[in-house]
């Protein structure tokens, strides 16, 4: 196999890895926010269900969760799951990361001083306005460093999709290494993950800087 063919195959894997990454971020952040509402709910049933969900998501391996999501439709309903690979990966990653993000949102929301809510109430803001305009922007600033940590972990975690034989970066690299007895794909993969994370960290730092205009 020529080097350029190898790079072609690897770059198609890169695109797929980035696909997993972006879909997971776009879906799991809002889901995590809603899960955090459930976690903080006054309804004890809802709160406990969410607590169990978060603890299972954090307490079991992501790889195992991916497998279960993937094989479930087949085991439960005998459905054909051949085309289900990508959706299963996105669902698995999303529900896992939403659990982590939910705990981060919760800690941020709970750290807000009650005076902010009281000032907003005195000025007549509705509950929704108070959350969207007053609380959430400040929460985002507070939790951004923790979000950055998770996002960087996610970049590396995308490689777990190899467990469902999804042709992302790591899966492709492993196959080429086995077939061609060359180590180069691993080097390329390492550089890819490193550069990807470097960019992600720079973007997150940019956001943090943008929000540093106030304390």
């Amino acid at each position: 196999m020529s080097f350029s063919t190898m790079l072609m195959q690897l770059s198609s894997g890169m695109v797929k890895s980035m696909g997993i990454f972006f879909w997971t971020i776009i879906l799991s952040l809002p889901l995590g926010l809603f899960v955090s509402f459930g976690r903080m709910s006054k309804n004890p049933a809802l709160k406990n269900i969410v607590k169990v969900y978060i603890s299972v998501m954090r307490g079991t391996p992501l790889m195992l969760q991916l497998m279960i999501v993937y094989y479930c439709p087949f085991l439960l309903f005998g459905m054909n799951i051949r085309t289900f690979r990508f959706p299963a990966i996105i669902i698995g990653f999303t529900i896992n990361y939403a659990a982590y993000f939910a705990e981060i949102f919760r800690s941020g929301i709970e750290s807000m001083p009650v005076g902010q809510y009281e000032a907003a109430k005195l000025l007549g803001y509705s509950k929704g306005q108070t959350f969207i305009k007053i609380i959430l922007p400040q929460v985002i600033k507070r939790i951004l460093p923790s979000i950055t940590n998770e996002v960087i972990t996610l970049v590396k975690d995308t490689s777990l999709a190899f467990s469902l034989a999804y042709m992302e970066m790591f899966t492709v690299a492993k196959q080429i290494v086995a077939k061609e007895s060359t180590f180069t794909p691993f080097i390329v993969a390492a550089i890819f993950y490193y550069v990807f994370n470097f960019v992600v960290a720079a973007v997150m730092e940019h956001f943090e800087k943008k929000l540093s205009y106030y304390r």
């Binding site: 009281e118 000032a119 000025l123 400040q138």
Partner: peptide
């Protein structure tokens, strides 16, 4: 302890509620 909104400028602290609530 004032309870100003730290992410809003002085002007926005004062004008936001009159504009968006009232």
């Amino acid at each position: 302890n004032f309870n100003l909104f730290p992410h809003y400028s002085v002007m926005k602290n004062i004008t936001d509620a009159p504009i968006h609530v009232q």
